[in-house]
Design a protein around this nucleic acid. Structure first.
Lengths: 146, 146
DNA sequence: TTGTGTTGTAACTATCTTTGTTACAATTAG
DNA sequence: CTAATTGTAACAAAGATAGTTACAACACAA
């Protein structure tokens, strides 16, 4: 199973907000135009980012802005904001190993530690990547188009 | 979205095969008893492990065995065997960013590199964990029960 | 060679998540 | 007040997971 596109959409949204903050009002409609999805999808993700303190959204008047310095927002922050991870666990352990089997009643303990290492490795890498980097890379690519 | 329980079930199966290889015939029924799922689930996962060269399954006579040394089988091998990853990509990128928007037409390039780093970090960690380790940890836990 | 146990696999179902959609009350600015 | 916009409910479609029954193909032993 893949990690949902909410993560890439969220990054896209944030990239747009920063890039166009001086030229356009950043409404869900405007952002939906760039991402190419229904505005409600954008609003839902903006709500998740807002709950995580990453953006502010102006109800009524409209428009979104980024609430923190770009280099203080990591890919992990965005991931945690939009991905609904069950107890924060990346791996889904099968529910009822047989407690009457020696392996069945110990596999959870033995394997959990390893799975935590894997999840940790992934999260550490995500933590090392900032929104500032991503946006700066995007803008470099835009400049190189000309 | 979580990674499916096929991974933990597969490890459980392999752990059982090694632990009980001298005492029992390792049929899908026997394994289903320890994992506590329907035997067909076991057979399906055994087929995936077989396709990856990790186990041999005896049609007709029945029983499964591990096809390689335990320290030559990594968690990544098992993960790749049972997890159906679309083009091998962990992250699902939203399909149609607007090519008429500067951000829309460059976000893919800018973000893909970062996502690859994250996936790589996860896979490297998985590659460093062997089935030998996991089984040895399980058997240590079993011994400590007494 | 016949019977028994087992695998390989198809077919179907239920449930969950994602993604997309319409609709509309609540809110804000002009 | 009006117009634009957000926040959110309600629903539907599509896809994946997980579970089940059923059965042909197969291997071995008596």
């Amino acid at each position: 199973m893949q990690i949902s596109s909410r993560l890439t959409i969220a990054v896209h949204i944030l990239d747009c907000i920063d890039t166009f903050k001086d030229s356009y009002k950043l409404t869900s409609d405007f952002l939906a135009g760039s991402v190419n999805v229904n505005p409600v999808i954008i609003r839902r993700i903006l709500q998740q980012l807002k709950a995580a303190g990453i953006v502010n959204v102006a109800r009524g008047s409209g428009g979104a802005e980024i609430a923190k310095p770009l280099d203080k927002i990591t890919l992990l922050d965005i991931y945690n904001a939009v991905e609904c991870i069950d107890n924060g666990e990346l791996f889904h352990f099968h529910e009822n190993p047989n407690p009457n089997c020696p392996v069945g009643r110990n596999i959870h303990n033995a394997l959990d530690k390893k799975l935590e290492l894997v999840q940790k490795a992934m999260e550490e890498e995500m933590k090392s990547i900032t929104l500032a980097e991503i946006i700066s890379d995007t803008q470099k690519l835009i400049r190189e188009e000309n």
